[in-house]
Amino acid sequence: MDERHLVVISGGLSQPSSTRLLADRLAEATAGELHEHGVTAHVRVVELRDLAHDVVDQTLTGFARGDLADAQQALAAADAVIAVTPVYAASYAGLFKSFVDVLDPDALRGTPVLVAATGGSARHSLVLDHALRPLFAHLGADVVPTAVFAATDDWADAGGDDVHPLPERVRRAGRELAARVAGRAPTRRAGLYDAVPSFEDLLGGA
Rank of each mutant, 00 (worst) to 15 (best):
D79P: 09
D67T: 05
Y88T: 11
L51C: 10
V55D: 02
V56K: 13
L60Y: 05
A77M: 06
A71R: 03
A71I: 06
F63L: 12
A71Y: 01
V43M: 03
D70P: 01
V81F: 02
T61L: 09
D54T: 07
F63N: 12
Y88I: 10
D79Q: 11
R65P: 00
D79R: 11
Q72Y: 07
H53Q: 14
R49M: 02
D54M: 07
Q73E: 10
R44Y: 01
V46I: 14
H42R: 15
T61S: 15
L60F: 09
V45P: 01
A64M: 04
V81M: 02
D79G: 09
Y88N: 13
F63T: 14
H53N: 10
P86C: 09
L60N: 07
P86N: 05
A76I: 00
A80R: 02
D54L: 14
Q72W: 06
L68V: 08
A71S: 07
H42Y: 10
Q58Y: 00
R44H: 13
D79T: 10
Q72L: 12
L48P: 08
A64Y: 01
D70L: 11
Y88K: 13
V43P: 01
T61V: 07
V45T: 04
V87S: 05
V56W: 12
V81W: 03
V46L: 13
A52C: 03
R44D: 08
Q58D: 03
T59Y: 06
V43S: 09
H42L: 12
A78C: 06
V46S: 08
I82G: 03
P86V: 08
Y88E: 08
R44A: 11
A80G: 15
Q72E: 14
D54R: 12
T85L: 05
E47Q: 14
L68G: 09
A69N: 06
A41V: 08
Q72C: 03
A64I: 02
